[in-house]
Write a protein that binds this DNA or RNA. Sequence first.
DNA 1: GTCTATAACTCGATAGAC
DNA 2: GTCTATCGAGTTATAGAC
Lengths: 214, 214
Amino acid sequence: MAPPASNTREKLLMAAMELFTTRGYEATSIADILERSGVNSGSLYYFFDSKQDLLLSGLDYFKTLLYPIVMQPNFEAESDPIERIFAVLAWYRRNLVLCNLDYECPMGKLALEVGRHLEAAREKIAINFAAWREHIRQCLDDAGNRLPRDLDRATLATFVMTVMEGALMQARTHRDLSFYDQSVQHLRSYFSQLQAQAAAQIRRLPRRKRTNTT
Amino acid sequence: MAPPASNTREKLLMAAMELFTTRGYEATSIADILERSGVNSGSLYYFFDSKQDLLLSGLDYFKTLLYPIVMQPNFEAESDPIERIFAVLAWYRRNLVLCNLDYECPMGKLALEVGRHLEAAREKIAINFAAWREHIRQCLDDAGNRLPRDLDRATLATFVMTVMEGALMQARTHRDLSFYDQSVQHLRSYFSQLQAQAAAQIRRLPRRKRTNTT
DNA sequence: GTCTATAACTCGATAGAC
DNA sequence: GTCTATCGAGTTATAGAC
């Protein structure tokens, strides 16, 4: 958790995670990381015990980037809590386009490759997942009575993540953006239906105030 | 496509795919495959040109197993077309339980690891994905007017696959079945809403006219 | 903290007898 | 078709000078 205050260390973390989350952990050699970071072998093993240690530190590093890189820009661009969620999903779509459809959720990619082989990595990936979902759940909480009263916000946040991960996987594999859009569109339909249910609940039990629908 | 009529070849394909889809392609060595199959190096390279060739042949092999292993048993156990889809999702849940929550969709796992590194592999994985979706789409077609008239069955099939892949990923990473169940439950809710919409369409136009609300 | 050189090992793939 | 022995390249990690 303590920031290293070393440029070399951060260069290594950045280079390693870029490679691990795109090429894969096993497919990335130490030599690849040294080349990309412009650092020598001796320095790497001065800061990190092993390739595994580099991965684990990188997963901690990624967690610190989640809010400022993924969430904050989209939350600032959109004030409506429900639209914030779809803004995040549009951000992933943009990455897909920018990477010529060769993009995956970095955590999702590592989750499948090393998620159960290395228990320490699994825990850290799970923490990243949980943080992502927590931000989405906060949006759902902020939506207040625009969603059904008895709807569990946490499980809906899980569902949003499910859709993001599954949709990216198919779009990348088919090299076809429409697979992503189709899934997000169905999620949007589901949200519309939930919002309609919530509106009906409010009409049915207006708390002495006037009912107002969206 | 022509069956090899060789026991050794099939033993190699089976062993290789079991390892590739669980440990991963890069993490599996030729030595691992030889050990598991009980075959020697010379025989492997008699039947296959390389590790890559073994993967590509394995992906073809997997395609032939999709219907008899994954779909048919569930379709036979359940006659209702919509319930057939949820029976398939329950089958994946069962795998998750049987593997102590260390289970992933074999194709999803390979899609993320080698899906874009090897173009030939990507194509074959996409073919497997398409076949899976096609079976689901057939169920949706069979549901007829129990789903809304203007609903695109193909995109809904994509959405079903999206949910399966994303839900498995989270359940495995968290080692917690409830992440799978939560996502499937939301998919079930979505289906219920769609079925309600379809029922309303039918009531509205039974054969003549009728008042409509909503 | 950083550098070069290299140890120790595993990898995919091959050779050639049978 | 199957076997054993092994090659050469590439792997992670270390040693020791600076």
